[in-house]
Design a protein around this nucleic acid. Structure first.
Lengths: 175, 175
DNA sequence: TATTGTTATACTCTATAACTATA
DNA sequence: TATAGTTATAGAGTATAACAATA
């Protein structure tokens, strides 16, 4: 080591970082997403697949424009997202009869079946991830997290991973 | 809507998702990372910059190979990560005298100064993110999260975002 | 021959801008 | 002319494989 360096005394101490809720959330969030990704891979699905499918299932018939709005992404992104689902036979784009510019989005029967299969996978995922906690603690944690999500203005059930909007002015790299 | 669809009764109900710790973690984790990214952008830094810099500062002189090991990424990825820091004048690669194949990694004085400036930013970030909670609740939350992180085998202070190892057998898309 | 770091290459994600069909 | 969706294009991130220097 050379003069000017301060090894054991660096400005971002490990201990402090460990206790920061913000870091723990980022760390555990990435971990949870990674585990989830692994779990649904056997079903041929990705996290974005599921998020988009769920939105469409919640109110079938909406347009791609409306979906883009809700997800917070540009329309061209929705095209790619839907192409993925389309290729898997999970979504159907129906030309609107009243305005032929619009596509009405509908899950296919296969999609509904797949979502049914997904449910137990989600439950296993949840159980494994919270294995360290008692049921009471798990509820407590869910409550605390929900309060933060609410205060932070996050849409219920909408993962912010979609609108990683690389605004032209900011230099962001990692979601 | 057409026969076979089940709009209000879809298989992934919003209410259930909302209470799942796993989803809340993924959602809040992505949100926390996004906010963090925005906050450090004015300093010209990205989240990976900070993570790597912190590791190097923790034990200066380590090799790129060792760093790759700790981050859980391939050596070629470390090259890119370090190139970013290098371009910003924050890291120095010194040819090892004992084994000229090695690069000993050292933060520059500018890096130490920047890490000093970073500290208050982290504190603001933490405070804003936990604004919904009392100090006691914040501690409680940190404790619950730390227990999960520990049980899940996460390295203390290491963000899993580095090793988004797209293993050839799995089909993962989003981190 | 084995190891460290680098370069070459390829693939995915995602945005912007140009384009087509429709209104 | 304005709008919905698509395609063309570009840039970042990240992996694998081939390579050069050193041991």
């Amino acid at each position: 080591m050379t003069a000017g360096e301060q090894a054991g005394d660096n400005p971002i101490p490990r201990q402090a970082l460990t206790r920061q809720v913000s870091f723990l959330l980022a760390q555990l969030g990435a971990h949870a997403t990674q585990r989830f990704t692994d779990r649904i891979a056997p079903l041929g699905l990705t996290p974005p697949d599921i998020g988009v499918l769920r939105m469409i299932a919640m109110s079938p018939g909406r347009s791609q424009r409306a979906l883009a709005e809700e997800l917070g992404v540009v329309p061209s992104r929705v095209v790619a997202l839907l192409d993925n689902l389309d290729r898997k036979g999970l979504v159907e784009r129906r030309r609107s009869a009243t305005d032929r510019r619009n596509h009405e989005l509908h899950p296919t029967p296969a999609a509904y079946q797949l979502m049914g299969e997904l449910w137990p996978v989600l439950q296993t995922h949840e159980a494994d991830l919270t294995a360290a906690l008692s049921p009471a603690e798990r509820d407590q944690l869910a409550s605390l997290l929900a309060r933060i999500a609410d205060q932070q203005g996050l849409d219920v059930g909408v993962h912010p991973g979609y609108q990683r909007a690389n605004s032209p002015t900011t230099d962001q790299t990692k979601g």
